[in-house]
Nucleic acid binder design. Structure first.
Lengths: 159, 159
DNA sequence: AATTTTCCGGACACGTAATGTCTGAAAAGT
DNA sequence: ACTTTTCAGACATTACGTGTCCGGAAAATT
């Protein structure tokens, strides 16, 4: 799994604290954790294409959440970065056996494929039950003051 | 996730049908699904190092399960091929914030890391509940005769 | 209208890991 | 002891993730 997932999740949590209608530019987000700005920007573009973030160009521009943080699941972010394909891709090697039935749908009938798919489903369900807002609330409970701290670093003009 | 996982699982299921004490060589296993023989051999080596398979050299040599198929979980095979590290590796980017506490254990305290780890735990638990013997039994129930078919192709001298 | 700021998208370079191949070492049977 | 069979590790090759850079478009300020 690429590191863009970790970066994106932290950025989304931070943006859930910025006031609505105010965008934050990617350079500022990158400074927070000393990340390569250009590369982080690229990852955020993927979130825009997925409809998770919205971007505005020009001065005072940047990124912001496209919908309330309660409506953004962790799975949404992961799929936006990693793509929709499952980690285990069944190549249907059973179809290559010399005497195999070419009409069979081995993606469904293969028991190995079913087992791996079931596990991946459990993984996705766990991630789909956690939202950005939920993580943000836990952070505030565990580290009081971190929200104001982030806000001061992200928008020093207003705080 | 590498394809070696898919290959290994199918091979383990097939070897759960071979008589105990009889090894099957990797070339024969590769023929079954038209896989590159040398590369499959390499993956099986990893299973040997993990204690899942045992190998014997020389004529009439090959691979066989090192313990009963009921004692081999799907997770065992996956970890042997993919390694023990989780798919999501937390880089603890929180530690890179300018005013961060260097003594913090961000792998535990970071909520993002916790969320991803929890999902991966669900994934592993699902896989650890499925055994090679369980898959083999499902295959026999769903495709009667496939076991004898495999056996005929793997050890034509005996069947 | 010009300029500045910022996002956007693609092209390019780099490093690492997965994939695939090859040759040698070890073991068993003759 | 020799030959055959097979595993085992080293070696090449390819694909992908990572990171950089540049030109273009959009929007606000001057």
């Amino acid at each position: 799994m690429g590191q863009g997932v970790e970066w994106s999740l932290h950025c989304c949590v931070n943006m859930s604290w910025t006031p609505a209608g105010e965008a934050v530019n990617s350079s500022r987000l990158a400074e927070l954790y000393q990340l390569p700005a250009a590369y982080l920007n690229k990852q955020l573009q993927a979130l825009v294409r997925a409809g998770i973030l919205s971007s505005v160009s020009g001065p005072r521009g940047g990124f912001q959440l496209a919908r309330p943080a309660e409506k953004i699941t962790v799975l949404d972010v992961v799929l936006a970065i990693e793509g929709p394909e499952p980690a285990f891709r069944c190549e249907s090697i059973l179809a290559n056996t010399p005497g195999a039935d070419p009409g069979e749908d081995y993606l469904r009938s293969c028991l190995v494929s079913q087992t791996m798919r079931q596990a991946e489903l459990a993984w996705r369900q766990t991630l789909s039950r956690q939202t950005i807002a939920g993580i943000a609330a836990s952070v505030e409970r565990k580290f009081p003051g971190s929200r104001k701290d982030i806000l001061r670093k992200l928008m020093p003009a207003r705080y």
